[in-house]
């Protein structure tokens, strides 16, 4: 065995292309499902169970989430992969605690956003989707929200890449915007799959809008627009606080952090990547 056989070749682009296709298909599946639901449904949801839309919502969003996972997971370096279980434990623990308080917040994306900031949008999206899938072993009702969770991870990674985590006050702003989009995507799931929201706090807000005569989807979307942006702003701020507390040696271990100078002042010229 020669010395050179102990080393790795430079990574080639061939396998990457196939994975990119899967990621793209996943994203398209989620987007198409969302558009279909919004275009076809709003009016008649409450006239029957509308289980056709339920199945489309479930199928399309889950398929998208799974394609994303299969596309992204094998491309992640092990140093990112081992963080995902850590992120999931944080998500699930905080999400379960918050769910039991009755407050209209979720806090179930801290781990996802943390990964996204350290390892980028693709890793964030995969973590979000995986989080829903693994959490569904304890609470199956989160499974249908996998696509929304993936979107949160993706947007958080994008925000980090654009430098929104370099200043502490920018992070909650990015979180707010992410929350708006994530809320709009998740609302059809709550409406068509569950016919409402799971928590007492969120339920009260939906009831208020229903009392004013909104359709169920509209009421839930409005509720999401109240809860989600606030929730995500807090989550992004918490994550910013956490990554600032990281020792430099740890933060710079991540190629994404080094390459896009995610955390201001923690950069330096590095070879490769």
């Amino acid at each position: 065995m020669s010395q050179q056989s102990q080393t790795l070749p430079a990574p080639g682009p061939a396998s990457v292309r196939g994975r990119r296709l899967l990621e793209l298909l996943g994203a398209v599946s989620i987007a198409a499902t969302f558009i279909f639901l919004v275009l076809t449904q709003p009016a008649d949801i409450t006239n029957g169970l509308a289980s056709g839309s339920t199945l489309v919502a479930l199928g399309g969003f889950l398929l998208g989430a799974i394609l994303l996972i299969i596309g992204v997971l094998p491309t992640l370096p092990t140093s990112t992969l081992v963080l995902i279980p850590v992120a999931l434990v944080l998500n699930i623990a905080l999400g379960q605690i918050m769910g039991s308080t009755g407050l209209p917040f979720y806090f179930d994306a801290i781990g996802t956003v943390l990964i996204a900031v350290l390892a980028g949008p693709a890793a964030g999206a995969a973590t979000g989707a995986l989080s829903s899938i693994v959490w569904s072993f304890i609470n199956p009702t989160v499974l249908p929200f996998a696509a929304g969770a993936a979107l949160i991870g993706f947007l958080a990674g994008l925000a980090a890449r654009c430098g929104l985590f370099r200043r502490f006050y920018l992070a909650p702003v990015a979180g707010f915007v992410t929350g708006i989009l994530a809320g709009v995507v998740s609302a059809p799931i709550a409406a068509f799959v569950f016919g409402g929201t799971a928590g007492a706090g969120t339920g009260a807000i939906v009831s208020a809008f229903r009392a004013m005569g909104d359709t169920l989807l509209a009421a839930i979307t409005k509720q999401a627009l109240i809860s989600d942006p606030m929730d995500k702003a807090i989550v992004f701020a918490v994550v910013a606080m956490l990554v600032y507390a990281l020792p430099r040696r740890t933060a710079l271990q991540f190629a994404f952090v080094r390459r896009f100078n995610v955390l201001a002042g923690k950069t330096q010229e590095t070879p490769g990547d």
Binding site: M1, Q3, Q4, Q6, L8
Partner: peptide, 29 residues
């Protein structure tokens, strides 16, 4: 780093891996 395992280097290639701190350094598998 120089690994000199018996049976290594069938082609007589047992030169050490040299790292210079540059991007095209060998990456150990």
């Amino acid at each position: 780093l120089h690994l000199d395992v018996q049976g290594a280097a069938p082609g007589g290639d047992s030169s050490p891996l040299v790292f210079r701190g540059s991007p095209d350094d060998p990456r150990i598998n």
